[in-house]
């Protein structure tokens, strides 16, 4: 398990960098085979290949969970 992800109380993979660790979100996505860029209107990170821009992330109030 990557240290940037934890398993939360619901058993989901949750990003530990919350919503503002842009570098960590890029690093994770660079090493992810499942990354898929979301639709244009939902992109939020300047670097395209970022978990923050992935269609498999689901935003939560504090961070996001990965559904892959």
């Amino acid at each position: 398990m990557d240290a940037l992800m934890i398993i939360n109380q619901s058993g989901e993979r949750q990003f530990t960098g919350k919503k503002d660790d842009w570098d960590a979100a890029v690093k994770l996505a660079e090493n992810c085979q499942e990354f898929a860029e979301d639709v244009e209107e939902e992109l939020v990170a300047d670097q395209l290949r970022s978990c923050y821009n992935c269609r498999f992330r689901r935003w939560t109030s504090a961070s996001f969970i990965c559904r892959k």
Binding site: D38, E41, E42, R55, R58, W59, S61
Partner: peptide, 20 residues
Amino acid sequence: TRHQLFVHADIPYTSHNSSM
């Protein structure tokens, strides 16, 4: 236009809860 709505565990949404 895209409008961001409340992101909350009790609201069912796909990934970002926005309306268009």
